[in-house]
Design a binder for these strands. Sequence first.
DNA 1: AATGAATGAGGGTTCATTCAT
DNA 2: AATGAATGAACCCTCATTCAT
Lengths: 215, 215, 215, 215
Amino acid sequence: MTTPNKVTDLFNQSVDDSDLSAKQKSVLQASLTLFSEKGFDRTSTSDIAKLANVSEGTVYKQFKTKEGLLHAILTPAIQQVVPKIANDFLTELLQNNNTDFKDFLKWLAQDRMTFAVENQAQLRILIQEIARSDGMFKRLGDTFMGKIAVHANTLFQKYQDNGQLIQWPMPRIARYIASAIMGYILPVILRNDHNLDIAQSSEEVAEFLYRGLKP
Amino acid sequence: MTTPNKVTDLFNQSVDDSDLSAKQKSVLQASLTLFSEKGFDRTSTSDIAKLANVSEGTVYKQFKTKEGLLHAILTPAIQQVVPKIANDFLTELLQNNNTDFKDFLKWLAQDRMTFAVENQAQLRILIQEIARSDGMFKRLGDTFMGKIAVHANTLFQKYQDNGQLIQWPMPRIARYIASAIMGYILPVILRNDHNLDIAQSSEEVAEFLYRGLKP
Amino acid sequence: MTTPNKVTDLFNQSVDDSDLSAKQKSVLQASLTLFSEKGFDRTSTSDIAKLANVSEGTVYKQFKTKEGLLHAILTPAIQQVVPKIANDFLTELLQNNNTDFKDFLKWLAQDRMTFAVENQAQLRILIQEIARSDGMFKRLGDTFMGKIAVHANTLFQKYQDNGQLIQWPMPRIARYIASAIMGYILPVILRNDHNLDIAQSSEEVAEFLYRGLKP
Amino acid sequence: MTTPNKVTDLFNQSVDDSDLSAKQKSVLQASLTLFSEKGFDRTSTSDIAKLANVSEGTVYKQFKTKEGLLHAILTPAIQQVVPKIANDFLTELLQNNNTDFKDFLKWLAQDRMTFAVENQAQLRILIQEIARSDGMFKRLGDTFMGKIAVHANTLFQKYQDNGQLIQWPMPRIARYIASAIMGYILPVILRNDHNLDIAQSSEEVAEFLYRGLKP
DNA sequence: AATGAATGAGGGTTCATTCAT
DNA sequence: AATGAATGAACCCTCATTCAT
């Protein structure tokens, strides 16, 4: 099953399409780079101005505060971590349930890995924020629940009825799927490693998950 | 298989047993709390002094630098993240290879979960550091390789020869085991959640891993 | 022999002419005053900010460091302590050797005394630095050797050939000239005394030196 | 004219003879070293304690403040800069006025050079203090006037009556003598140079001064 | 007499933010 | 819209000094 990469980089898109001036765009790009490299707290607005070839004042014209910059960078990323687009695909899946469970697992892994590799910098920043503030992790979880849970639940139900998925509670199943995929993604992000063989990795992880989750 | 909890909290122990004065101990405790709650960069040395009921000068008498404090807190934690004690157990396992693979998985999960719950604060800080600096993650990985890899390799080999473990390369197997356990640990740490049913969780994860990894 | 005062105060000139803002100039002036009055180490950057009617941050905008301020003040002074301008005069002297040795001595004394009186504050600071660090004295001496020695040597040679100057080695002669003039300058600087009758003093010292150094 | 070195190091004597304990003595020695090397302001009391192999508290037992240490070091030196002992010699000179002026100059130079070489460290500190505070230079001058001036005046008078000394006012004569000798001493002190050929230097300077000051 | 842990004021410096130009 | 000089609060850290032991 080949899935076209539906993950469009919202960040770049918003940077490119937005009504931001060239200077403002370069501020965003510089922030992304520096926040990801050195962390939010260790990046000074003057560092950003320097890298963006812009005056310090310009940094504050569009994004009223340093935190405003962070949000401008993180918000689109967050909205994609919870796969809004994938959701459409899930709906589709529910309608024509001819897709094999293992194929689904492979597609899911591939989709998220692609997203991760394409958005390494933002994800690195996101992970830093998650690690720092209690709120972020919970908020992410809640968003996920609100947007995905229902559909995923129904889908898993279907696979369970199919006899392709073990009769465990949905959160338990989700946890194993998520953590197995994370096992490939996190090292890549945390090591600034840009080489992940997505095709093979998604195949591998799907195989393992399938074995572990079949009845 | 019941394993006595061999994980002693090195941090608290060292804080209590060390020749540090009461004030110095309270500095360490305050730093642990604040670094974990607000992050290293957002904790000021004056915050620490205030919480520890101590003058700012005192903070610097023992730990020459704010980073010195961080290391004083992190070093013992790091040395336990790589399960030194587990290593002894592994050696033991290798000698009397009558232990079932599933029991081993359960013991491992339980051991690391216990450690994680007992050292939440430090691990939270460690995760923040991992997220911030490229170096930390690699260093941890290398330490792990140096201390565990050989024994684990031999052990897995044994289980493979036993017919209890699938014939996949060792790093792949390790990745799944680690990430599945992490799937239980990370949410607990990142949410400051203190309620993890270790007995049931370790049972659950062992069951899943066993299914996914048996030939 | 009347010599027009060629000594222009490079410091004030550079302060006035430089592209520094009014605030930055006032920072320099305040530093000059305070360093000279209380010494570098006993002057705090907050003192400087207060005297300059400027925020502490402003002190650091132009001069990245407190030591940077010191150098900004000292560098032009040092370049004049070694009399660059005098050097031109020496060259001239060498060409029209009709100048009497005593007149030369008088001119030299007058030139350096004028310079000293006009740059008391900087010289006070310079003396403090010389007293503090081994390096400074040597560096000054080397600079002097590099810029003056050759010309002075030739000039002295001429006066020796003339029969106006005793046949002592050049360093010995230079030592006496320098220390006799210093005998007038140092008390003025160290006492913050602004009244030095340069005309009479240079006449006096020239007379003494001439007697001591004629064959 | 051979003059026995009447300059005894009052500092060492007071350190040795005083009722100070061994530890206190070592505090003084350490202060002397460090003040001379790095300057008073850049020497911390903890540096002193470390070099003296003593606790920080001990530094404060005898010398109530850091400035107290400075005075303990400087006071004896100051009392010798104004040559109290030489004064006895001057008195003697006045009584049997058979001593040649040039010999007197030589003796004076030798006496002060010896003192300077033997007390380099203290003099370095003294120079730093002179450079820093207006008061010190004046105080030294006044002390000098009070203790020496009368005798020196009478002595110079005698040499003038003798026809060995030019009829210039006494301060002018003193200035030339002092600055010529300083011309040998200062470079030695400021360069931490320990090699001064006192015999030759005093001979040289006496020769020059004699030529410059004879009628 | 001697120790060294503790203090707290103050030091140099950084940095997010503002605002006149 | 863009600049960059200016701000001032806060930061990390040092140090002279004190005092219980």
